[in-house]
């Protein structure tokens, strides 16, 4: 009997343990054989033999169970060890693509103004003279309206040179108050290292009762917006001129590259021009038939924002579908 205890303790696998169990507990097993011996034993000894055998049976059962659990654990451990892999081989190699940095920047800009309760409006790329120029206080002989800058069609239609015509369209079919932005592609007849014939703009317009909208309001939203886009920067306003706003200003941010120290990107000035804005010229309101209103407007180039945010040096590279650039924005 003792040797069987030893055999159980030394069993090296679940299978050998199972064959030991059969040898001990099976129909022809040793326990059965021992019990069979009882038939021939004296009656008075039977009780004692039975008791002893039952004690053995109990001990062996629990020993077997214990040993089985140990062996199973060991076997699982060994199997898992055999399944060991070099996980470092499988460092990420994403098959994801990416949205374009300019479009992504546009999304961010739209997100900001949408959260500030501006409505988003779009309009056609092919425009007429009235919506693109005339209604924006740019009469035909205006020096700011150089024929060279505009793409015309043979039937006198044109490719919009800014998204401002969307503002005109919106004002023509909605009553004030207005609080809107117009994101979209615009076109200028210019193609060199810093100009492309197509680029993207977001323009904004706010119109309310006369005397309600001030330059101070315009400053507030643009300062907030620029800090949202560029983080901790300084914002500077410079008086400027646009035919559709008066007073007008250009807005600079402290250079994001050199933190205002002066570098190549900011032409050593420490400032980067990023926006144009102003109080809407009364002639614009006159053109759309608005009376007793005041408003502000602003406009920005999305490529410029994207290039500054992502430190992209070459404007033209944005239109080449070059994966070497695009894959960096995954």
């Amino acid at each position: 009997m003792e040797e069987w205890y030893k055999a159980i303790e030394e069993a090296s696998s679940v299978e050998s343990l199972e064959s030991i169990r059969v040898s001990v507990f099976g129909k022809k097993g040793i326990l059965a054989a021992e019990f069979a011996k009882m038939k021939t034993a004296a009656n008075e000894e039977k009780a004692k033999i039975a008791k002893d055998l039952n004690i053995h049976k109990g001990k062996m059962t629990s020993l077997l169970a214990e040993r089985k659990m140990t062996l199973q654990t060991l076997e699982l451990r060994a199997r898992m060890e055999a399944e060991k892999i070099d996980v470092s081989l499988f460092s990420s190699r994403s098959e994801k693509g990416a949205v374009h940095p300019v479009m992504d920047t546009m999304d961010k800009i739209v997100d900001y103004f949408a959260s500030m309760n501006f409505s988003v409006q779009t309009g056609p790329m092919i425009e007429d003279d009235f919506h693109n120029f005339e209604a924006l206080n740019l009469p035909k002989y205006h020096p700011a309206r150089d024929m060279q800058d505009t793409f015309y069609f043979k039937d006198e239609m044109l490719l919009r040179t800014h998204t401002s015509p969307v503002q005109i369209r919106t004002m023509l079919h909605t009553k004030p108050p207005i609080r809107m932005i117009a994101p979209g592609s615009v076109f200028r007849r210019d193609y060199d290292i810093t100009h492309t014939p197509m680029f993207h703009q977001v323009e904004g317009l706010l119109v309310d009762k006369e005397g309600e909208v001030s330059f101070a309001n315009l400053k507030y939203i643009l300062e907030d917006f620029l800090k949202y886009m560029f983080g901790d920067i300084e914002v500077r306003f410079r008086p400027s001129f646009f035919p559709f706003t008066e007073p007008s200003a250009e807005v600079d941010i402290s250079c994001v590259f050199c933190k205002g120290e002066g570098c190549r990107v900011c032409s050593k000035t420490g400032w980067l021009e990023v926006l144009g804005c102003g109080i809407v010229d009364p002639n614009v309101f006159k053109a759309v038939g608005y009376k007793d209103v005041s408003g502000y407007a602003f406009g920005l180039g999305v490529e410029r924002f994207a290039m500054l945010i992502h430190q992209i040096g070459d404007l033209r590279s944005l239109f080449e579908g070059d994966v070497r650039l695009l894959e960096q924005f995954r």
Partner: peptide
């Protein structure tokens, strides 16, 4: 898996 590209019209 696709990269967005923007081309002139």
């Amino acid at each position: 898996g696709f990269y967005e590209s923007v081309h002139f019209v």
